[in-house]
C-alpha cells in the first residue's frame, strides 16, 4: 500500500500477546494491593517486606509486585504470542486492575 509515496506493510498480529500484557498488568496491580493489605494486617509479613530499611515495607511490597508482573508478562507472552485474541484474559486483566485500584483506597483496604 502506498501513501504519499511511502510503502507501508500492514502486519496482522495475533491478539494473544496483547492479552498477555493486559492480564499480567492487572495481575501486578492486584498483587500490589493485596500485598499492601497483608503487610498492613500482619506485623510478621510487614517485617519480611522490609527490603530497604529507610523505605520500610513499601520496598518489599512494590518489588515483589513488579517482579510478579514482569515474570507473568514474560510467561504469558511466551505461551500466547502465537494465539488468537483471548477476550476473557483482556476482561480479567482490566477487572483485576480496577479491583487493585479500589483496594488501594485506604478505607476499602482497611475492610479486610
Amino acid at each position: 500500500m502506498s501513501i504519499h509515496g511511502e510503502s507501508t506493510a500492514i502486519t496482522h498480529l495475533p491478539g494473544g500477546a496483547g492479552a498477555a500484557a493486559l492480564l499480567s498488568a492487572g495481575f501486578g496491580v492486584f498483587a500490589l494491593s493485596v500485598l499492601a493489605i497483608i503487610a498492613d494486617q500482619s506485623p510478621a509479613f510487614k517485617k519480611t517486606m522490609i527490603f530497604y530499611l529507610p523505605t520500610g515495607p513499601l520496598s518489599g511490597v512494590t518489588t515483589i509486585a513488579v517482579a510478579l508482573w514482569i515474570v507473568s508478562w514474560i510467561g504469558l507472552d511466551l505461551l500466547w504470542r502465537r494465539s488468537n485474541s483471548k477476550g476473557w484474559a483482556i476482561t480479567i486483566g482490566v477487572a483485576l486492575l480496577a479491583i487493585g485500584f479500589l483496594l488501594m483506597i485506604p478505607p476499602v483496604g482497611d475492610i479486610f
Partner: peptide, 22 residues
C-alpha cells in the same frame, strides 16, 4: 501504593503499542 499503578500501566501500554503499531 496507587502511584505504582502508573508505571505498570503505561509500560504495558508502551509494550502493546510498540508491538502492534497500526
Amino acid at each position: 501504593h496507587v502511584a505504582w499503578l502508573v508505571p505498570i500501566a503505561i509500560t504495558m501500554a508502551t509494550g502493546v503499542v510498540t508491538r502492534y503499531g497500526q
